[in-house]
Design a protein around this nucleic acid. Structure first.
Lengths: 151, 151
DNA sequence: GTTCGTACCGCGAATATTAGCAATAGCGTG
DNA sequence: CACGCTATTGCTAATATTCGCGGTACGAAC
């Protein structure tokens, strides 16, 4: 990925931030690592990949937060641990997170648009679709007899 | 609240759990405290209210988790801190959480039904509406001139 | 009412993440 | 290319929450 960096650099610069070596490494690692990655995993990946760059774990956390805030990456809670993924992962997808087995499934939902529209119109609130994590119970974890009946 | 306890006790018993003094106190405190409460606040409330019951903070956390799991209370992340509220708080409401100011607004959304329906039909996944926290940016925090265009 | 199995409690240590501080290094300017 | 402003870094301490362990007590069965 030699020549798509400039765009990212501009985006970072545009938000009044700086493109530090650490930030670049983190982005790169996140771009390369498959699926969702934890802060610790990213830290390890960067340290393994490049030995001449010092990187504190807190720096990883801070950057992950900043990058998520500017929309370059997506963050969401995954059972006590926060995981991150490259935001430009092709198509927009949402997460169905099962409280039973803890598994997270990525799906594309049409109804989200209507929901986003309603919230926008009624409350002037703009939903961040990248952070849309839906919790509930998947088909496998729903016990046959157990009918929560919760609304 | 002298005589509505039996139902709750049954619900707790039904899930193979026991109605301990601590659990009851926590439920009671949560029922009485207005709005969302943190584990620490609940712990403080119980300790102030009753001096003859010892209660470790970890016990509060454990019970909060258990009670949320069985649907008696609702839990959701509120900026690094988890808050809880009585589940039978009248009407169903969802949370619009602003990433800018961190404020959480409680609203009723019609489109949620359609979303829930789609997810149920397409993936056999049952959304837990009580845990439905929607993140984004509220009208106040969306700067008029600053259009990041980072979408 | 006594007994018994086990869920639960309190305590303290572990884990994930955030915050504060002095030193460093982007990057726009002269 | 050196200079300066300040965002950022590494470090360490704090914070929120979870886990493991040995002792306790809930609740069901005698």
């Amino acid at each position: 990925m030699p020549h798509n960096e400039p765009t990212i650099a501009e985006a970072i610069r545009a938000s009044g931030r700086r493109l530090t070596i650490q930030r670049a490494k983190i982005l790169e690692a996140l771009h390369r690592l498959p699926g969702h990655s934890t802060a610790e995993r990213i830290h390890a990946a960067v340290c393994e990949d490049d030995r001449d760059v010092e990187m504190a774990l807190s720096t990883v956390y801070r950057n992950l937060d900043a990058l998520a805030e500017m929309g370059l990456i997506a963050a969401f809670a995954d059972g006590g641990v926060t995981t991150y993924e490259w935001a430009a992962a092709g198509h927009p997808h949402h997460h169905l997170q099962c409280d039973g087995c803890g598994h997270t499934k990525e799906v594309a939902l049409e109804s989200i648009a209507a929901l986003s529209d309603e919230v926008e119109r009624t409350y002037g609130f703009t939903i961040d679709l990248r952070h849309m994590a839906i919790r509930g119970t998947c088909a496998g974890c729903r016990k046959p007899a157990d009918d929560g009946g919760a609304r």
